[in-house]
Structures are given as C-alpha cells and as structure tokens.
Amino acid sequence: MNTGIPVIKTVDLNLFYGDFHALKDVNIEVTGNRITSIIGPSGCGKSTLLRVFNRINDTIEGVSVKGKAYFEKTDIYHHSCDIDLLRRKVGMVFQRPNPFPLSVYENVAFGLRVHNQAGGAELDGIVEESLRSVLLWNELKDRLDDSALDLSLEQKQRLCVARLVAVKPDVILLDEPCSTLDPMATMKIEELMVELKKKYTIIIVTHNMQQAARVSDDTGFMLLGELIEFGKTSAIFTSPEKKETEDYITGRFG
C-alpha cells in the first residue's frame, strides 16, 4: 500500500565487485504502487542496483556494500535482516523465463510449499488466483499438469510472475523481462505490469527506452555506476535536466 514512505530507498549506496566500483553514492526513493524504470547503457550498474533490493548480489563472490538500502523500514544490509523474508517480499523476474522443470501447477505452488504457506484446497485457490492475476488462467486451466517447459516464451514469463505473486510479495523486480520476447508478447507483458501496479510496486530494468517511456511512472537514468537523473517519466523523456540523460535518450551517447 502507498503509505507515503518510500517502499525502496537507498542512501549513499556504494557497491564493489572486488575492486570494481559498480555503484557510486546512489540515492533513490521508489514510491509504492508505481512502475519505476531504470535505464542506462550496458554496464552502468542498473541490474546491480536492482539486485541490491533483494540481495541477490550476495550470491556473487567479492561483493561489498557501503551506505544504506531500505525495504520499507527494513535495513536490507543489516545483519538482522531476514533474507528469506526479504526475497519473498521483494521478488524478481529475470531476463530469460526460468520456470522449473515441473508442471504449471507445481511451478506456481512451489514457493508456497517451500515457505509452508498453504496446502490442499487453499493451495488450489492461490494457484488459480495467481494464474488469473497474470491473465494465464483461461489459457492454462486445462493444462495445469502439463510441463511448464512446453509453454511459449511469453507464457513462461507470465508463469514466472505468477510464481512470484503466489507468495504475496510487495515489490516485483523485473530485469529485462521482455528482451527475449517478440513485440506482441512484449505488449502483453507491459499490459500485465500496468495491471499489477495496482497491487504491487514494480521496478524494471530495461534496455528498451521506448518500453520505459510506455510503461513506467518514474524513470532513473544511470551511467558508470551513478544515478544521473531520477524523475517522472514524462519529464525525463520530454525535458531531461541533465545533458547526459538527453544524450542517452536521444541516441547521441558515446
């Protein structure tokens, strides 16, 4: 729910991969029930920033962090932070759809079983509700026992979102969610994002600037590890304040 306090916030956040300074003094505040996009050239740190929010970066060796990152009131990098809970509340969808080699039903039920959140009829209900929320139910209700690997790419990506939604997250992180999809499938995923923001806070990293312009409410532009500019998408794409932003979005960068 939008309570006025930022759902995700960083304060002078710095991140290093060994000696490499990947994020430099990033200060960002992401508001609830909005779609926030992070754009920037390859290697600018946008995926790294996204991966801070649910500490997926922890899986990479040699990562160190200075500064603060918060999910609501939780200090993400404090030793007391419950990482399993954080990852349930802040879920992630990746570039390539990555369903488990299980049935459609079991993919959606997976998180609930792991977290012991539901069973039996209740589980059936949540699976149905989750598939409905990603507009897959009508397509797949008679194929729940089929392998998820037999779905189309776009259906797989939706299924991955359904898998997240099932464990009732607050924030959905999407890392290039449409880069392997064709334009029609991309459009469907974009429609889905707009639908999902009523309930969730969505942060998307994308190379596709038109996608950022189409779907997001706020946009951040990153360059060489710094957050150069952050503001309303409509302002960033019509009258950006920083020359670097202008150069990048008009294709004059580099």
Binding site: F237, T238, S239, E246, I249, T250
Partner: peptide, 9 residues
Amino acid sequence: YQPTAGDLR
C-alpha cells in the same frame, strides 16, 4: 524514430 527530449521538442 520515436524521438525524445530535445529532438521531440
């Protein structure tokens, strides 16, 4: 070209 920013203006 779906221009943006200065080009769009």
